[in-house]
Design a binder for these strands. Structure first.
Lengths: 191, 191
DNA sequence: CAAATTTTGTACCGTTCGATCCAATACTGA
DNA sequence: TCAGTATTGGATCGAACGGTACAAAATTTG
């Protein structure tokens, strides 16, 4: 009962995510969120309670999107090395697509991680999950004799995540596709 | 002539650098800068003209410090591979020392790069300089037959910078020394 | 010593921030 | 049809922001 909503909550979260992504948390005003989502202040506060809560929703949405992308690549066809290669290619392609926005996860960890426990916990949990997924892939590649057995799978997982982070920072620094692709190429030589 | 300063400009810039480093630009209030530097508002604005200008000074100071560190490692003893290894070790050690502060350069590029031309230009110029230095080192290693000749030196340079960025992001994400060291170890396998 | 000059501390400026209040609006269910 | 309920737009809140004005204080120079 009551007056029905004139907007889609999911669409609003998605629009908010994009603004936070390109401008950062502090630099995004509530008015900017109103313009981007098309909602009025009342609707935003009535639905999401605060700027911080809306940001958490947006970040969760982003984490879910990228998680799906990661699993779909790692569950794909081919050897583990081929799949890791494809993972980096996807990262490069995404980085080129999103221009200088970089990665919302990395951006948020840097801007808010050290002083926002809620955000920190979300990103930490997601990171642990990705490390486990990558480490599993590495272990399976090592079992098949396809990846060097001497390396610690968890370290390799951290390395891959670190290279991904580095590529996204490089993208936000304005490097072009060739540079990002070159980084991915060299990184693959380590595996 | 006139009343003499009661503070050291250099010390003030250094103190400001540390606050910006750990809190970020937007999240650092002018009052926080007063407390950290020990100066009053008047002294800050009389000397540095604006928060943004003070930040530029602080960032320049940081860039200079890290540039000195980079040259001192790359100009050191040993093979190129040994020096690159030592470079990553220094990065890891610094990252552990500065705790979750990460790298002011990376932090600033992410927070301000896309919307602050002055900051963007400073960081871009510094990056180009570091790429050139690293690429030179790689080329010299390749001439001596000590590094694989097949790789593009500039790509390798970007890779190293990217790994450094990744390590610093990982540090700001709260990873401990063992994780950071593991990333450096795997990265060295690519060279 | 006094005029000139610069720094310093304090009070304050206008603006913008995130957030709230409230009446008008648009629905549901009895 | 109308009481009840939730959403909406608009006005507005107090706090905090970056920055300024101004006079007292502390020097140098003549």
């Amino acid at each position: 009962m009551g007056r029905p909503r004139q907007f889609s909550e999911e669409r609003a979260v998605d629009a908010a995510m994009r603004v936070f992504w390109s401008q950062g948390y502090e630099a995004t005003s509530t008015e900017a969120l109103c313009t981007a989502t098309g909602l009025g202040r009342s609707s935003i506060y009535n639905t999401f309670h605060s700027k911080h809560d809306l940001f958490a929703r947006a970040l969760e949405h982003y984490i879910q999107l990228t998680a799906e992308s990661l699993t779909s690549v790692l569950d794909g066809e081919g050897t583990v090395r081929e799949r890791l290669r494809r993972l980096l290619d996807v990262i490069v392609a995404d980085a080129v697509d999103s221009g200088r926005d970089g990665c919302l996860g990395v951006n948020s960890m840097i801007e808010l991680g050290p002083r926002d426990d809620a955000v920190d916990a979300m990103l930490r949990k997601d990171k642990e999950w990705r490390i486990a997924l990558l480490a599993d892939a590495v272990r399976s590649g090592q079992r098949d004799g396809e990846l060097a057995a001497g390396m610690d799978p968890v370290s390799v997982a951290h390395f891959v995540l670190s290279v991904i982070g580095g590529i996204r920072v490089a993208a936000r620094s304005g490097n072009d596709r060739a540079v990002l692709q070159g980084i991915a190429d060299v990184a693959m030589a380590a595996l």
